[in-house]
Each structure stands twice: as C-alpha cells, then as structure tokens.
Amino acid sequence: MTTQGTTEGLTARSMVEHISAQGVTHMVTLPDSETNFMYDNMTESGMEVVPIAREGEAIAIAAGLWIANQKPAVMIQNSGLFESGDALRGLGIGIDLPLVMFIGYRGYTRHGDTPDSAAQFLEPFLHTWGTPYWIIETDAELDRIALAFKKAEETSKPVAVLIGAEYVSV
C-alpha cells in the first residue's frame, strides 16, 4: 500500500484533479473495478456526474452535452466500451466529437499472459476504430491526461485514456 500523491501507484484524488484541470463539466459514467474509487472524488470536484444504466448510453449522452456547449468526458470499463462500439462509430467518430474516454483496463497484467479477453481485445479494438490512446498506471503518468484532451481537440475525434491499475488510495 502506498499513500496519496506518491508516484508508486494511482490515486483517485490526483486523477480527478488532472481531469478537472481540463475544464470537464460532466462525467458520464458507470462504475467499474478500475475506476470505482473515483466516484466520490468526482462528485466533490464540482463535475456533474451522470450515472448510466448501460455503457452504450455514454457516448450518446456526451454528444448531447457537447451540442449544449458543455465539456463532457466518459468513464467506463473496457467491456462497456465494446458494448459502445456502434455509438463510438456513429456518435463519436461520425460526428467529429472531441471526447476523452477514460477506460478501465480490466484484465491488464503487464506481463503478456492475459487470460481476460476484455484485456486481449481492448487495444486491437481501439486501433480498429483509429482511436488514439494513452495508458496510465501511476500518478507519475497523469500528465498524459492533458495530452489526451489536447489530441481530442486538435483532431475533433474521441480518444481514450486506459486506466491500467486499480487505485492505491482515494
């Protein structure tokens, strides 16, 4: 166990601070094993949390928020991203939506032997959709969040930040 603010792990509070710094107004989310500790931090940060019943709703709701001139982000698990594939096609890439999607990387093992198919297919899936992504495992890598938002704005397309670690502290 490490403590908040160290570079040895990923802390929810630090991550939310980096997301808030990008001016995110709404987080459309369904909690998962990798990102669940974020929930209380997000509600306390001033972001409006939009809980969803199923991940396929997320990109469509984000598109609506963007139409209303808000700055949404999405936080779902990789299994839910697969369920969202058609929304990513039609309502993300298809409308040139600048959107950062935080994706819980369920099954990520870092050593190649990956029994969970949700992990096996995640990066090939993103390559197939032509969606750029960054992986974050520690607080030392949180500057990649700013890179992701910059890329989404520059390209006016969805990009992904993959959360490759469960949080060591809130």
């Binding site: 709404h26 709703e57 469509a60 709701i61 984000a62 609506g64 139409i67 001139n69 949404p72």
Partner: peptide, 25 residues
C-alpha cells in the same frame, strides 16, 4: 432540429445530454 436516423435507438440519450447541458431549454 436533429434527425438521428443513424443512432440505433440513442435518441433519448442524445436528448438527455442536451437537456442536462442546457437546462433552460
């Protein structure tokens, strides 16, 4: 007006996002 004939049932979700982002409309 926004026709969403390519959204595979996501009309309610798109409209919800707009409603949340523009609460006076």
């Amino acid at each position: 007006d926004i026709p969403t004939n390519n959204s595979m049932g996501k009309v309610s979700s798109i409209a919800l996002g707009i409603a949340l982002g523009a609460p006076d409309r």
